[in-house]
Design a protein around this nucleic acid. Structure first.
Lengths: 193, 193
DNA sequence: GTCAAACAAGACGTCCCGTCCCGATATGGT
DNA sequence: ACCATATCGGGACGGGACGTCTTGTTTGAC
């Protein structure tokens, strides 16, 4: 059992060191040599646990930032969505974690393993949580009864990711409010009540 | 003048060769040595024109795919948006260009020069074109008069980019229709007419 | 106390970026 | 027609990092 224990300690140490170094120099300049040296382990010890630098980085980033993004249910769907979206922007949309998350998605563009793991371990759970909360809201009559719920997460997240990855503008609470306002109101002309 | 002409020829040859090679092996495995060898030029000749592999790649991708995404104005805003969005998905959302565009955005995540150039040369013009078309539609009463027009482009493009970059699901015309439908209808409950 | 597995350290082969050098070539002025 | 200059092709070079492999050592299990 102590072997397991020691082994687990090393795994934690390596991930933490990788994260620290990534925060200091960024993913592009993160080297396995540097991780091994600072963690005080041999490179083999790292490669025995992760098959590549990219997957170590993925574990390092995801393992520490996937908490605290569950939806509350206060009864007010807009307020609940705003809270989660704002919190996500705070966590992933600005330093120190923002650049790392950007790099992770960048890496996913040419590394299918990273892309798949990112989806399964982070995106899909978040989408499922959003869907559940939104379904409840629809049943309570807080949403249009015929709205395409499966699209809601992408509709709300898409603009945020667009800012994060394409225009690289800051993700402010004000922007979250604008997105919510627009998505709820809809773009088409409204019939006069 | 002939110097200019020769020079221009070489620039074209190098960009085309870089594009061909990128289509064959992808950006990650694209090497300057290979580009120089196949183009029959020295590496200096490339580095005299582009400061890095990333910016050569950017030029190569953007120079050949930025046409044909202007908005028509048939008088039907939904039909016009659908046409442009569908065409954009066809061009950028699937092979052979899709992976290159993904890689370009991936590179932009850790290369500010690439990010800035991509924005200025591709994203912003497209956003401006969309905004102009949408403004006209609003003035004709085809859109809600108080809708946040500056947000429209991000609202419509965001979900498409989300699929392209995050979930890597295919960008089909059916998906474009769903996005348009949802964005126009809005998520909130509608007053009974 | 013995042994096998895991370990730290680091050498190694490979790849490729970006720079530098050199001999060849073509250009444009005269 | 001819020469001076800038550009060119080819390739050597230094540098850095990935991922593998080797070696001798430490650790925990039995």
């Amino acid at each position: 059992m102590n072997a397991r224990r020691r082994s687990h300690d090393r795994t934690e140490t390596i991930m933490q060191t990788a994260l620290d170094l990534a925060l200091e120099v960024g993913y592009a300049k993160l080297s396995m040599e540097a991780v091994a040296a600072r963690a005080g382990v041999g490179k083999d010890t790292i490669y025995r646990r992760w098959p590549s630098k990219a997957l170590l980085f993925l574990d390092a980033v995801l393992s520490s930032r996937t908490q605290g993004l569950e939806h509350p249910d206060t009864g007010d769907i807009v307020a609940d969505l705003r809270q989660v979206m704002t919190r996500a922007c705070d966590l992933l949309g600005r330093p120190p974690w923002g650049p790392l998350y950007q790099d992770l998605i960048g890496e996913a563009q040419h590394n299918p393993e990273v892309a798949a793991a990112l989806n399964e371990r982070f995106i899909q759970p978040q989408a499922a949580d959003t869907l559940a909360r939104i379904k409840a809201a629809q049943e309570q009559g807080q949403l249009a009864p015929d709205f395409d719920l499966d699209l809601a997460f992408e509709l709300l997240s898409g603009p945020l990711y667009f800012r994060l990855l394409i225009t690289h503008e800051p993700l402010t609470p004000a922007y979250v409010d604008r997105v919510l306002q627009a998505v709820f109101a809809g773009m088409g002309p409204r019939p006069q009540p």
